[in-house]
Write a protein that binds this DNA or RNA. Structure first.
Lengths: 192, 192
DNA sequence: TAGTTAAAAGGACAATTGTCTCAAATTCCT
DNA sequence: AGGAATTTGAGACAATTGTCCTTTTAACTA
């Protein structure tokens, strides 16, 4: 649910310290600001220094489906950079955000010339595929109750961190179903 | 549903032609044979030369959820290689398969020393993330009827190619629901 | 070709989840 | 503090999807 990548953050932080040519700059955003918008061009790759953002797709039904919440060290814009395509999702600040902004040209240069960076990106991509595969499979094969228990197990205080609508959008259900299931779980003593 | 990667196939074919050190070898499998098994170590990365394989996860409910069907040029085992982890899915031949088998050591060497290969892998990974994100979002936000129409639009003859159980496992539904919905669509004249 | 096995189809019912609506609680302004 | 706006909670009902089971059809084997 809330993804981090400390290793990548450390490395980008290191690149930033080097400070050569001012290639990487810091940028801040306030909650609800959108950094990348679905269907638009992406001119930079971003790594989160601090704060949290949500990554979501808006469906033709009007529903938002939240892919993940990104926190320290998570990268976004890299898929679009590598595919040389417009964005397929929207990234929106969930809290005050501080980002490292890497221009496309420099990102590609790093990929080509910096083995360490290249490997970190390969790993970041492989991890995304891994968790996406597991999550999709789980979501398709289990009822809401199981999904909620799983979420609770991984993020005990999810219901304090996020509004109900966001939790529902993350689970791909309605708020009504979420409330109903939370009540069932409370009645069974499986949740506080 | 059936993924291909011609560009990667061409390049791996080219590497194979070079034939240095016999690093890449060809291997064949018959339907139902498993090339990679969930939970086990992966010793090679594979690229499909011809035929089709299914990539699926088995859930604790006993359900198989099919991530994708892989055909010419699709790569698998690369996630595990990059993450240095055991496999999280099973790859099983759906038809007679011919594969290029790339040993881990050579795969890593290529990633490090061959810019063209490296970029092709980055693209392959980015594409997987892209289509997974879009599919998961769609699946969570639409009823079975929409999923089926979408499948029909993308693969008009899916119901001739695959048994019902496989289609159901790909859509994350039961065969009963699949049949019911196919009937509804026929009644509405939306499907043959 | 008959007999066995597997795949496809669907009836009947139950469980799950969504839709619509309204009321209560909470937050946010100025 | 007082009123507006947002968030939360839930009742009543409808629609969707799953479970279980039986029948039909197709496919394979000896």
């Amino acid at each position: 649910m809330i993804r981090i990548n400390k290793e990548l953050l450390n490395y980008v932080n290191h690149l930033y310290q080097l400070g050569t040519e001012g290639n990487i700059i810091e940028q801040t955003f306030e909650p609800t600001e959108q950094i990348i918008k679905s269907g638009q061009n992406v001119f930079s790759v971003y790594v989160i220094k601090s704060g949290m953002a949500k990554c979501y797709l808006t469906e033709d039904t009007g529903n938002d489906f939240i892919q993940e919440f990104f926190a320290e060290g998570e990268i976004f814009g890299e898929i679009e950079a590598i595919r040389e395509d417009i964005s397929f999702c929207t990234i929106e600040a969930s809290s005050p955000l501080v980002l490292y902004k890497i221009p496309l040209a420099y990102f590609n240069e790093l990929l080509l010339k910096n083995n360490v960076f290249n490997r970190l990106i390969l790993k970041a991509l492989a991890n995304k595929i891994n968790y996406k595969a597991i999550r999709h499979s789980y979501n398709q094969s289990h009822p809401v109750e199981s999904k909620l228990l799983r979420l609770k197990a991984n993020f005990p205080d999810f219901n304090k961190l996020l509004p109900k609508q966001e939790i529902a959008n993350y689970l791909g259900i309605t708020v009504r179903s979420l409330n109903r299931t939370l009540n069932d779980l409370k009645a069974k003593g499986l949740i506080s």
